Computed example of a mutant assay.
Amino acid sequence: MLVISRKKGESLLIGDDIEITVEKIDTSSVKISIKAPKEKVILRKEVYEKVKDENSNAIATTKDILKILK
């Protein structure tokens, strides 16, 4: 894991095509902007985890229904 310090207005690059810039710093949060190709999917981790959990629950439910139908 890379830990890096940035000030407001400073950026970091991921590869050649993703740029993350610090836009605003408050006492309890940081606002960032992300410039990336449209084909890159960018999700907040908590949203990704929620969708992943919901998908797992849906699959389990489908398997349970198929067991009942047999």
Rank of each mutant, 00 (worst) to 15 (best):
I34R: 12
L12K: 03
K8S: 09
M1K: 05
R44I: 09
K38E: 04
K70G: 01
V47G: 06
K31T: 04
R6N: 05
A36I: 03
N57I: 07
A36P: 05
I25K: 08
K70F: 07
E10F: 00
S29I: 07
S56E: 15
S28A: 14
E39N: 02
I68R: 08
A60P: 01
K40G: 01
D26W: 05
D17H: 11
K31C: 02
I59Y: 12
K63C: 10
E10P: 04
S33E: 03
E10L: 10
I42L: 00
K63P: 03
L43V: 12
I59M: 13
Y48S: 00
D53A: 14
D17K: 12
R44G: 11
K31W: 11
V41K: 04
V51P: 03
V41Q: 12
Y48R: 05
D17F: 11
I4M: 01
S56T: 15
I59V: 15
K52H: 12
G9P: 02
L12S: 01
A60I: 04
V30I: 08
K7R: 09
L43E: 00
I68V: 14
V3W: 11
E19D: 02
T27R: 12
V30F: 09
N57K: 06
R6Q: 04
V41L: 15
V51K: 13
L2F: 10
I20S: 00
E23P: 08
T62D: 10
I32W: 03
K63N: 14
K50P: 04
E49H: 10
V47I: 12
R44N: 04
V51M: 09
D17P: 05
T21Q: 01
V22C: 07
A58R: 07
K63W: 03
R6E: 04
D16L: 09
S28M: 02
I59R: 12
I14C: 08
V22P: 01
L13R: 15
L13I: 14
T21C: 06
P37K: 01
R6S: 01
K67Q: 00
L43K: 07
Y48P: 00
K7Q: 15
